[in-house]
Amino acid sequence: MSGRLSLLILAIISCGGLLAPGARKAGADQPPLDSREHLEEILERPLYQRWRLRQERAERDNFKIDEKYLNKFWEFLQECLEKLFDWLSRRSPRSGLAGGLGSIAGSLKAAGWLALALLAAYLAYLVYKTLRSDQLHRARAKILSREQIRKALETGEALALAGSGWLQEAERLVAEGNFRAVYRALYLALLSGLHTAGKIDFRRNRTNWMYVFFFRGPEGEKESFSRLTALFDEIWYGEKPAPGYSLSQLKDQVARLTRKEIQHA
């Protein structure tokens, strides 16, 4: 099919080449080119090259596992299962009630093995989860220098500290009288906490409203998050004075939204 299309394209390009004004002139004044050279010249043309590359790409994209191999795999699987059942039936008595019971016992044994394998997989998953959580908390608990915290605050690297860490930083900034930065630290506490609680996925290329849009949580919490985001926008991007919210009020809101993370911390 691809070969036929290739020939068709070649024919179109060569016809186009003959019909082009330049080609007509050359045909009239000069002897015709050797057909092989002419063909090579056509194959060199960007139009053909572009088509060929596109065709190759399309073929790559359309690549599918051959049904023949799929059938072979199913046959192999069937064979393995048959062998397994043969083995199970050989291990149990063949006649009468005893034979039937033996077959049930064999099946139960196989089911037991399967359950054991599943249990082992689940235990492995639990161990992995615990280790990952521990690693995360150890990373969070690492003590950053003042300079590192200041840099994280400036660059908006919310995951540099845990939510509770950012809340402490906010309190320190209050003492310094840097109220604009206080709100920034509070918002970073919110993002860090929500990320740990699994309600958002923090990524540096996302805007605050993207987090609101993709928020995973109850509608009420989403509204609170939306209000806090609008407030942060006003203060940080709008460079407006902090409105009549007290720090403790905002801290409470942040803590409520990130409850899981704060409790854990």
Binding site: R50, L53, R54, T155, G156, A158, R204, N205, R206, N208
Partner: peptide
Amino acid sequence: EIEGAAAEDIMKSILEKLEVPR
């Protein structure tokens, strides 16, 4: 162009690498 890439997709990949100011 040969690969059929759209300007929107390239722009998207650029934006994915840039940090949003916060």
